[in-house]
Computed example of a mutant assay.
Amino acid sequence: MAHIDYYFTTLSPFAYLAGMRLEEVAAKHGASITYKPLDIMALFSRTGGTAPKDRHPNRMEYRMQELQRGGKKAGLPINLKPMFWPTNPAPSSYAIIAAQNAGGGDMGALVHSVLRACQYEEKDIAQDDVIKACLEAAGFDPKLADSGLLAGAETYGRNLEEAIANGVFGSPFYILDDGQRFFGQDRIDDLDAYLAGDL
């Protein structure tokens, strides 16, 4: 059975535009997923990337067009300039890590709920009430937002180091257990084809 390590930041509009397609592809091929939220700004600084605020206007204008087109293609509503972006991604990341460790809910739904809250619903995903609502909606105990903060911080840091060691440089990023890497929500079809043996 194939396994997918999914590296992402809860701030990523492109991870949001993936919707639940990763989970659909994994289910289709009987693959498992480990969700690995990480500090994207630290990742950028260590892998030659540039924070959005420091990018040339040409790049940012193109990014906006890509987000608009991506939302239409995915059938997902998106705000091009969310009210609470960027915000601190650590609290929502710790909650995702705690939920994955606890089990019992729908991880894909949780991750998508957090991303949607940030990218469309104009909610601050650094706030406890927002995080707890996302946990509860995905079938997890909302109290997970208050527990395992130290373990969450340790895993969050470990995810970053592991990502760099494994060739990750952006979000969303998918790595199969055979080392094949796929960057971006627009490569999920390629991931699907690869798991089917067509690539």
Rank of each mutant, 00 (worst) to 15 (best):
1 M>Q: 14
2 A>V: 08
3 H>Q: 12
4 I>E: 00
5 D>G: 01
5 D>N: 13
5 D>S: 12
12 S>G: 02
13 P>L: 05
16 Y>M: 09
16 Y>P: 01
18 A>I: 06
21 R>W: 08
23 E>Y: 09
23 E>W: 09
23 E>Q: 15
26 A>G: 07
27 A>H: 08
30 G>H: 04
30 G>K: 11
31 A>C: 10
31 A>N: 13
31 A>K: 11
32 S>F: 04
33 I>H: 03
34 T>G: 03
36 K>P: 06
37 P>G: 12
39 D>K: 12
39 D>T: 10
40 I>S: 03
40 I>K: 10
40 I>E: 02
41 M>D: 09
47 T>Q: 09
47 T>L: 08
48 G>N: 01
49 G>Q: 12
50 T>S: 09
51 A>F: 07
51 A>I: 03
51 A>C: 03
52 P>T: 02
52 P>C: 03
54 D>T: 12
57 P>K: 09
58 N>Q: 14
58 N>H: 12
60 M>W: 08
62 Y>H: 14
62 Y>D: 07
63 R>M: 11
64 M>H: 11
64 M>R: 15
65 Q>E: 10
66 E>V: 11
66 E>M: 13
70 G>R: 00
74 A>K: 06
75 G>F: 03
76 L>K: 04
77 P>N: 09
77 P>Q: 12
84 F>S: 05
84 F>P: 02
85 W>H: 15
92 S>L: 04
95 A>N: 09
95 A>E: 08
96 I>T: 14
96 I>E: 08
97 I>Q: 04
98 A>C: 03
98 A>K: 09
100 Q>F: 02
101 N>L: 13
102 A>S: 09
106 D>A: 04
108 G>S: 04
108 G>M: 03
108 G>P: 00
111 V>L: 04
114 V>A: 07
118 C>T: 05
118 C>K: 03
120 Y>L: 10
123 K>C: 07
124 D>T: 10
126 A>M: 01
126 A>E: 05
127 Q>H: 14
129 D>P: 14
130 V>P: 01
130 V>E: 02
131 I>E: 05
133 A>M: 01
136 E>S: 15
137 A>G: 13
137 A>I: 05
140 F>Q: 07
141 D>E: 05
141 D>K: 07
144 L>P: 00
145 A>N: 08
145 A>W: 01
147 S>D: 13
148 G>W: 04
149 L>C: 03
150 L>N: 11
150 L>R: 15
152 G>P: 10
153 A>T: 04
156 Y>L: 11
156 Y>V: 05
158 R>E: 06
159 N>F: 01
159 N>T: 01
160 L>K: 09
162 E>G: 08
164 I>H: 07
164 I>E: 04
165 A>V: 04
166 N>R: 15
168 V>E: 03
169 F>Q: 12
169 F>W: 15
169 F>K: 12
170 G>K: 11
170 G>N: 06
171 S>D: 05
171 S>I: 03
173 F>H: 06
173 F>K: 06
174 Y>Q: 09
175 I>K: 14
178 D>M: 12
178 D>H: 11
180 Q>C: 12
181 R>Y: 06
182 F>S: 09
185 Q>W: 10
185 Q>F: 10
187 R>G: 00
187 R>K: 05
188 I>M: 06
188 I>Y: 02
189 D>N: 14
193 A>C: 05
193 A>H: 11
193 A>I: 03
194 Y>R: 15
194 Y>K: 15
194 Y>H: 14
